[in-house]
Amino acid sequence: MKHLLSLTHPIQLVGGLTIWSIWFVAIYGGLSVACAVAPPDPLRDMWTGINLAVGLATLGAMALLLLLSWAAVLAARRTSVRRECYFGNVSAGIYLFSAGATLFVGYPVIFLPPCL
C-alpha cells in the first residue's frame, strides 16, 4: 500500500486527474443541489455564497495539485531507478495539467450568477 502512495508509482499517473474529477463532480453536483435547495436572489448576480464556495474549492484543489506536482518532481529526482524517474516525471506533468485545468474550469465563477 505504501508503495502505491509513492509518487513514482504508475498509479500516480491517474492521481491528478482523479482529484480533478472528484473536484469537478463536487462543484457541479454541489451547484445543482444548492440551486435546487436554496437558489439565491438573481439580483445578487455573481456575488453569492455559492460562487464564493466554488471559488474557494477551486483554489484549494489547485493548491493541492500544485503541491503534488512539485512533490512528484522531487521524488523523480531522488530515485535512481529509471522506471520510477520516468513515471514520477510524467505524473508531475499530469498533476500540473490538472492544477491548470482546475483553475481554468473554475474561473467562470467570477462573471456568472450561479443558478440562471
Binding site: 469537478f24 451547484l31 445543482s32 466554488v54 474550469v105 465563477v109 456568472l112 450568477p113 450561479p114 443558478c115
Partner: peptide, 8 residues
C-alpha cells in the same frame, strides 16, 4: 441548465 454549470 444554469449558465455557470455550462461554463464548467
Amino acid at each position: 441548465i444554469p449558465q455557470l454549470a455550462l461554463a464548467f
